[in-house]
Design a binder for these strands. Structure first.
Lengths: 149, 149
DNA sequence: TGTAATCCCATTGACGCCCATAGGTGCCCA
DNA sequence: TGGGCACCTATGGGCGTCAATGGGATTACA
């Protein structure tokens, strides 16, 4: 099981290529296949990254019939359909598809954000705004509960 | 076990041929036989694609006697009866039978949709409509549960 | 003998591979 | 303990290869 930590901002070159942070590559390398799976987050303006094993778990949930009635299956199915398998080039880069770039609003730079078993790719400014909101929410919650983190 | 991911739209040429996406061909190649099995989806206006091993699993469910009383067996039996085995041509294309095309309403373009252990072939506009509905269902559910995907 | 399916060849455009450079960091050795 | 060096990561660009597509020719079947 991979573990994605920390945040890295890398450049998107003219061809749409980005270096995947070396530590993320190392986490992905545990699997059999040298690459990553990406799909558009259903709720956020971000791209989600995971390894093949993660997709296989989704695959196990999708069954011949159901799907339409069961929201959980519908989610897994739509993720499978939306995802793409991207291999690393010899330098550890991937080519980001145009529609994924559009979904996240990414142009010059891409921010890789570790989220544990998966990671996300954001447009840096959008990430900053999202983080600020998340911060505020956390602060408010801690104040209410008097918790010390 | 193959893993079909992502969505690809390919052209149907004048002769009724379509290129099967290279990554799907790779997933199918794990099996012994260079081709694919197709049948009409019982629920959706789409064609279902799978490998031979998948059909063998259906075959195992169907018993000489029973069938009609058990809905699951009945489904497997009808799928086996409706399915056909199509070989790739040297370029990796298949010739889509006319009745399958009619069932899915496919004319100019065919959308190959990964669903994990199987895939589907749709008429692109119909797929878009279906995806929109599935999206709405997913959104509603995620919003309610506060999940972050 | 006509219709249809399969094979073969050609084209093109995208993608993956190779090379080269730079900057930064950590390591080794004096 | 300080300096120098080597490696690794991130980046840019040119080129070859393969996937997708079109069309013609040959073969198989009715």
């Amino acid at each position: 099981m991979p573990l994605f930590l920390s945040t890295f901002v890398n450049k998107v070159d003219r061809k749409g290529r980005v270096s995947v942070p070396a530590s993320f590559r190392a986490a992905l390398a545990n699997g059999e296949w040298p690459g990553v799976v990406l799909y558009r987050s259903p709720l956020l303006p971000a791209i989600v990254g995971a390894d093949l094993a993660y997709m296989e778990r989704h695959s196990a949930e999708v069954d011949e019939v159901a799907s339409l009635s069961d929201p959980r299956q519908a989610l897994s199915a739509s993720i499978l359909a939306d995802s793409r398998q991207l291999a690393f080039d010899p330098e550890g880069r991937i080519l980001l598809p145009a529609d994924l770039l559009a979904h996240a609003g990414i142009d010059e730079h891409a921010a890789f954000v570790g989220r544990g078993k998966t990671f996300q790719i954001w447009q840096p400014a959008a990430l900053e705004a999202f983080n600020a909101k998340a911060q505020a929410l956390v602060q408010k919650n801690l104040a209410q509960n008097g918790g010390l983190a």
